[in-house]
Amino acid sequence: MCLAVPAEVLDIDGSTALVDMAGVKRRICIDLLDEVHPGDYVLVHVGFALQIIDAQEAQETLELLRACFQEDLHAAAAPSTE
């Protein structure tokens, strides 16, 4: 039941926001967050925004992982010197 879905904030009206959850538009309550802006991605759970997704953090960790496995792929592809 603790399922929360990422959604893009499209528009804000007082304590509610119109969000896009994978193509489904829905109005949710944003009173559990201090500040939300259009364009933010939030985690939506039972009609409430629980947290803003930190896009920069997400990007950095993904890139870190990608860098690791690309290094590994290159190492595997490189001709052995032994």
Partner: peptide, 9 residues
Amino acid sequence: VGFETTIPA
């Protein structure tokens, strides 16, 4: 019902 995720809502 709910855990900490749902309790505030």
